[in-house]
């Protein structure tokens, strides 16, 4: 595993900075719109549903379930599993599943966020609970 290439550091921008600042403290944020009350991820300044600019940061418990996944059998960095997680708070997001037997993943399985270091802010990955 040690020969895995380094994870890319998030570049960040004024819109996403609070997310990455929170990530360095182990907090997983998403956004909710105060106008239409809908949560979304990845975070935008303007709500992608109603276009209100009244979006606010909210902390996720970092738990959810696997919506779908696929195990890539070969890559330069070895096998890896990509997938979508649907957070308990609502939004679904793209991720990789880590620190587990990749052969045993299942749709509907409970997972939680784990942070992986980069040269900058850490990145959210998910692992079975």
């Amino acid at each position: 595993m040690s020969d895995k290439p380094k994870l890319p550091s998030p570049q960040g921008n004024p819109e996403s900075k609070p997310f990455w600042d929170a990530a360095t403290q182990g907090k997983f944020l998403f956004k909710r719109c105060n106008a239409c009350k809908e949560p979304h991820y990845f975070p935008r300044a303007l709500c992608p549903f109603c276009f209100s600019d009244q979006t606010v940061w909210e902390e996720s418990k970092g738990e959810g379930k696997i919506y779908s996944y696929s195990l890539m059998r070969k890559s330069a960095a070895g096998p890896y599993a990509i997938g979508y997680v649907t957070l308990d708070e609502g939004p679904s997001l793209l991720t990789n599943f880590v620190d587990c037997d990749l052969q045993t993943l299942k749709i509907g399985q409970r997972v939680k966020v784990v942070w992986k270091p980069t040269d900058g802010a850490p990145l959210p990955f998910f692992t079975p609970i």
Partner: peptide
């Protein structure tokens, strides 16, 4: 705009279409 939030997960055509097939089967 999704770059920072997705690029590390190595979406290729194979595994993204694989996810579609996996959910369709489910």
């Amino acid at each position: 705009a999704e770059h920072d939030f997705e690029v590390a997960y190595n979406a290729t055509t194979h595994n993204i279409y694989g996810m579609c097939a996996m959910r369709h089967m489910h």
